[in-house]
């Protein structure tokens, strides 16, 4: 019995090491080759695009990219999405937000908007569009609760894919600075012998850190 249990633990360990890996591919496009360096005191705002009816860019992904940038950029302020959208209400609501730099140009003709953006010292807008989805899943786990105890048994596995694109606008020059795309995929496992042990591929997290790292390289 003990021997079997050790074998199972080894199997889970191998799965944890060999599986659960996520692969991330980053692609970058720069509109011009000149370096786009931010000055100290300037701000960057990371926003999610949510006007597609079939999916919604997750708030926590946008927050993750913003947080990763904030911790890595010294002297540069990263404005939290909700705080920015609330302060700029109603101009950055989903149905009213500028879809391209030309629309942003028109928006800054409104004095209240221009003043508020100047207060924020915004230099870059980063618009993130995309989502994470489970593309395939197999296996099954059954759990039982009885007066004598509870337990689960089975094995499940699923594949996750994250696809995101960040479009960067330079507010100072009112032009498109570039685009960064991040594609990440991985397989998670959930073996259960009495207690389910999740071995998760951190697909979204991997896409977040890779994208934040690339944006950092883009603006610093």
């Amino acid at each position: 019995m003990l021997n079997k249990f050790i074998k199972l633990l080894i199997l889970i360990g191998i799965l944890a090491i060999s599986g659960c890996k996520s692969t991330t591919v980053i692609d970058e496009y720069r509109e011009n080759t000149s370096t786009t360096i931010m000055s100290e005191g300037e701000s960057i705002v990371v926003l999610g695009r949510r006007n597609n009816s079939s999916y919604e860019t997750e708030f926590d992904f946008v927050e993750c990219v913003g947080r990763s940038l904030d911790s890595a950029l010294n002297g540069i302020n990263v404005i939290p999405e909700q705080s920015f959208v609330d302060s700029m209400y109603p101009y950055f609501e989903t149905s009213k937000a500028p879809m391209d730099v030309q629309n942003l140009d028109r928006l800054v003709q409104i004095p209240e908007v221009a003043n508020k953006l100047n207060d924020f010292k915004v230099r870059y807008f980063v618009w993130i569009d995309g989502f994470t989805e489970t593309t395939d899943s197999t296996g099954a786990i059954s759990c039982t609760v009885a007066p004598t105890g509870a337990g689960c048994f089975g094995f499940a596995t699923w594949d996750d894919e994250a696809n995101y694109e960040a479009v960067i606008w330079d507010f100072k020059d009112l032009n498109l600075s570039g685009k960064i795309s991040a594609e990440s995929s991985g397989t998670s496992y959930l073996p259960a012998v009495i207690v389910p042990i999740p071995l998760l591929a951190r697909v979204q997290s991997s896409a977040c850190t890779s994208m934040a790292s690339q944006i950092r390289g883009f603006i610093q």
């Binding site: 109603p90 609501e93 149905s95 009213k96």
Partner: peptide, 13 residues
């Protein structure tokens, strides 16, 4: 709440 925000934005703009 999001629908009310959207309505408010449309009324204003």
């Amino acid at each position: 709440t999001m629908a009310l925000r959207d309505l408010g934005a449309k009324i204003i703009l």
